[in-house]
Amino acid sequence: MTVWAFDILALLALVWLAWRAMTARRIEVAVVTFLPYGLLMALVWARLRAPDIAIAEAAIGAGLTTALLIAAANRIRRRSAYERAADTAAASSRSADARLGGWGKQLVGAVLACVVGGLLAAAVANLPAQQAGLSPQVEANLSDSGAGNPVTAVLLNFRGYDTLLEIAVLLLALIGVMQLRRETPGPVVSAEQRHSLVLDSLVHVIVPLIVIVSGYLLWRGGDAPGGAFQAGALLAGAGVLLILNKQARPAWLSARVVRAFVAAGLLMFGGVALNVMWTGRNLLEYPIELAKPLILAIEAAATVSIAVILTMLFGGVLTPHRAPSLQGGAS
């Protein structure tokens, strides 16, 4: 009974927060609303017995996505003196129509949402009630996979392709964001933020703690919830803190070492995937006795790559300009 009450409350709150996150009058409020939405989502994942996803959602879905969106909202607002002037002068007249498009768009959106929603609801309602899915197969092969946590086994062994390509997607996104940086030195974006001693002391305590916890998550990920993604996302959180506290600079991406870190995950994963083919196996088919060390090596490299890439994605959105000192020959 009480569990049902929690389910219904959580879902109602999720839908309401989602609506607020899209349509709150001020864009800052909308963006910040995404944070409690993500955290509530993490609770729901825990309730649905998906602790791996809960950790990833709290770190990536709630934390990093919101940080990215806040940085973007700030950047768009900061550059638009025009919009700010209009905001204060005619806030009431603007706000009425600024959020939603014209009647046509609203109608099309509503019709589309109803059609897709109806089809999806019908599909969900027709799912067979009791089905184990693929879990018997996973459990049968778990002892050969080199990982005790079934989710890790699926991610890095049974469906290694997905994870390999996922790291490639991360790398592509980073390349895309970096291409969008501008050549001009531009103004110092964060001049208005002054140094905060309190934040400084928090960073001094919390960054080492995050490093320890992410190492723990990486190590435990073999047999318990956790793994490379959660550890990397957590480390990226530390990276975001360091950038905000000005102890790390996004311009460091130009450094060779950082680029090596960025590529390490994909190179390690791809290297292992190809190397097992020497002995006549298929792509990504690890020898059973070597599975555990290979998975651990891939995960360690992937953690570093994911952490650096996610941090740099945030840095690329936060500071849109290339550092003047590193510009060199760029015209």
Partner: peptide, 13 residues
């Protein structure tokens, strides 16, 4: 079932 879990984890990233 752990397979959708792994897919969603990939999806979040």
């Amino acid at each position: 079932d752990p397979v959708p879990h792994a897919m969603v984890l990939t999806g979040i990233v």
